[in-house]
Amino acid sequence: MAQKNTPIKESPQEGFVFGKNNYRLMLLSIIVVLFGFMLMIGDTDIYEFRKIVLAPIIVLAGFAIGFIAILKK
């Protein structure tokens, strides 16, 4: 039995899944989330505007940046 010598199709090598901008956005995301958590700490009043409004908004913005960094092509 003779076998046909068919060339094997090789898939082109893929690069990294994320590009340079994706990693920059992820780093920015981590920094923003950490900054938001740092705003939540302290010895002042627990019901201060900074702790119950501003810091959670900044943390959510950091998570949104991370979400965008993952989905961006």
Rank of each mutant, 00 (worst) to 15 (best):
M1A: 15
A2N: 12
Q3N: 13
Q3A: 10
K4L: 10
K4A: 13
K4I: 11
N5M: 14
N5T: 09
P7H: 10
P7G: 06
I8A: 11
I8V: 13
K9V: 11
E10R: 07
P12I: 13
P12E: 12
Q13M: 06
Q13L: 13
E14T: 09
E14D: 08
G15H: 02
G15M: 03
F16Q: 10
V17T: 09
V17H: 02
V17C: 06
V17Q: 05
V17M: 06
F18H: 10
F18R: 06
F18V: 00
F18L: 14
G19A: 03
K20G: 04
N21I: 12
N21T: 12
Y23S: 02
R24F: 11
R24T: 13
L25C: 04
L25D: 01
M26T: 05
M26G: 07
L27G: 12
L28W: 03
I30W: 06
I30Q: 00
I30V: 15
I31T: 15
I31F: 12
I31Q: 05
V32E: 04
V32G: 03
V32Q: 01
V33K: 03
V33I: 15
L34C: 14
L34G: 14
L34Y: 10
F35K: 06
G36T: 02
G36K: 06
F37A: 05
M38T: 13
M38P: 03
M38L: 14
L39F: 07
L39R: 09
L39C: 08
L39G: 04
M40G: 11
M40Q: 15
G42T: 10
D43A: 14
D43E: 14
D43Q: 13
T44M: 07
D45K: 11
D45V: 06
D45H: 09
I46R: 12
I46Y: 09
I46S: 14
I46L: 11
Y47G: 09
Y47I: 04
Y47V: 01
Y47Q: 05
E48K: 08
F49D: 07
F49Q: 10
F49V: 09
R50L: 04
K51M: 08
I52L: 10
V53H: 05
V53S: 09
L54D: 02
L54N: 08
L54P: 04
L54S: 00
L54G: 02
A55K: 01
A55P: 04
A55L: 06
A55Y: 02
P56L: 02
P56Y: 01
P56D: 01
I57P: 05
I58C: 02
I58G: 00
I58S: 06
I58D: 01
V59Y: 05
V59H: 00
A61R: 06
A61Y: 04
A61C: 07
G62S: 03
F63I: 09
F63M: 09
A64W: 07
A64F: 08
A64R: 02
I65H: 07
I65D: 03
G66H: 02
G66R: 01
G66Y: 02
G66L: 03
F67L: 14
I68H: 02
I68A: 10
I68D: 07
A69W: 00
A69L: 03
A69N: 05
I70L: 14
I70H: 07
L71K: 14
L71A: 11
L71E: 04
K72H: 06
K72M: 15
K72A: 10
K72Y: 13
